[in-house]
Computed example of a mutant assay.
Amino acid sequence: MPNSVSAELLVTMKRAATVLKEHQVPFALAGGFAVYARGGSGSEHDVDFLIRREDADKALKLLAAAGFSTERPPEDWLVKVYDQHRLVDLIFEPVGLPVTDATLADTTLMRVEAIEMPVLSATTLMSYKLLSFTEQYCDYTRALPLARSLREQIDWERVRADTKPSPYARSFLFLLEQLDVLPHRRHGEQE
């Protein structure tokens, strides 16, 4: 992998993924570690897995039995587990959209640090990043490295369609055109 991430978080990612795989809990590696797995900039903060809401209780019980401590935070879109101080988010409603079988199918089976696991598509990673932008949070400095490092893996037309309601996403896509990360759209070309 070209970009470094915390060795401790890699161990935590592998431990959690192994538990979920062994017990056939459907999941997908997401967030910064999915970007890392696809060759982009890594994550030093936490590990993110997408799971379905109906699998959250089972995942918490299994991970607790494997030695993780668990937390049900006030946010109603995820649960958390800790491997000592290292955080794993189990997200079942990223950016207000429920994780479905279709979401979990939008993955590639990849070997990540010697463990084979489903990794969320670069297209969905980019769409989720853009859909996370709001008036309170609009940090293009986190989205730009993702767009640049994974641009060949991203279906940009799908990203445009998935994020069309967001003025922040449209602005970011325009910025990518101005920076020559994306080809410029001609006047009158469909959005």
Rank of each mutant, 00 (worst) to 15 (best):
A65P: 06
A169D: 03
Q153G: 08
P94K: 04
T134K: 05
T108W: 06
L109F: 15
L78F: 12
L179H: 10
K80S: 15
R148F: 06
F172H: 09
Q178G: 14
P167N: 03
S132Q: 04
V11C: 00
A30E: 02
Q24A: 09
E177Y: 15
G188C: 07
D48G: 09
E54Q: 12
G40H: 04
W156D: 11
Y128A: 01
Y137D: 08
A64G: 12
L9N: 05
S6H: 10
M117H: 05
Y128L: 14
H23D: 00
T70H: 09
F27C: 07
P94H: 03
P167E: 09
Y82E: 07
L104T: 02
R86M: 04
F27N: 02
E152S: 10
H45A: 09
G96N: 04
R160E: 15
A105S: 09
G67F: 13
G40Q: 11
R151L: 05
D83G: 08
T103R: 02
F174S: 10
T100L: 11
S132T: 08
L29A: 02
D106C: 03
L176T: 14
Y168I: 03
Q190D: 06
Y137C: 07
A17P: 06
A65D: 12
L29F: 04
V112F: 10
D162C: 09
S166M: 11
A66T: 11
L97N: 01
E71D: 11
L29N: 01
W156G: 08
L90T: 02
G188T: 11
V35R: 12
G188Q: 11
R158N: 06
E116C: 12
A56V: 10
A59C: 08
Y137A: 07
L179T: 03
R86T: 05
L78H: 09
R170F: 10
A114H: 15
H45L: 13
R111N: 12
A28T: 00
R170L: 13
A56F: 13
V112Q: 05
S6D: 08
V119R: 00
R52G: 00
H85P: 05
Q153V: 14
S121R: 01
L9Q: 07
P145Q: 02
A28D: 00
T103P: 01
P2Q: 10
L50T: 00
E22T: 11
L176H: 06
V81Y: 07
G32W: 13
L62H: 05
E93T: 11
N3I: 06
S69H: 10
H45K: 07
R151S: 10
D180T: 10
L130R: 06
T103W: 03
P118T: 03
D89G: 10
P74G: 02
L120P: 03
